[in-house]
């Protein structure tokens, strides 16, 4: 899966987890634009793991800021886990 494909799959997941109708692209900030809170955070972590069949440490997701950052983190995990 390349970055574009990841983003394509990722954005609807984020829209669902965040229950957001807003325009979301890779520049969208999880905190500033979507107002992610702690419950959303864990919910997103679980959703990413099941959608992309990866395991992600909390700390890795906590260090991301934008949707693009999350896509990069997902890509890294996928590469590692083959």
């Amino acid at each position: 899966m390349d970055r574009e494909e990841i983003l394509e799959k990722l954005i609807p997941i984020i829209r669902e987890v965040m229950d957001s109708q807003e325009e979301i692209d890779e520049e969208t900030s999880m905190q500033e634009d979507l107002g992610i809170d702690s419950l959303d955070f864990y919910n997103l972590l679980g959703a990413l793991e099941s959608a992309f069949h990866i395991r992600m440490p909390e700390r890795v997701l906590a260090e991301t800021e934008t949707v693009g950052d999350i896509a990069d983190a997902v890509m890294k995990r996928m590469e590692k886990q083959g």
């Binding site: 229950d19 809170d37 702690s38 419950l39 864990y42 972590l45 679980g46 959703a47």
Partner: peptide, 29 residues
């Protein structure tokens, strides 16, 4: 923490064991 919302939405629980901060967010959501 990661699975709680999804697990809870399966429904069928009489008793929830959690922390106040999460309980508050559930009610808001």
């Amino acid at each position: 923490a990661k699975r709680f919302l999804g697990d809870l939405e399966r429904g069928g629980f009489d008793r929830l064991i959690t922390v106040p901060a999460v309980m508050k967010k559930l009610i808001e959501r």
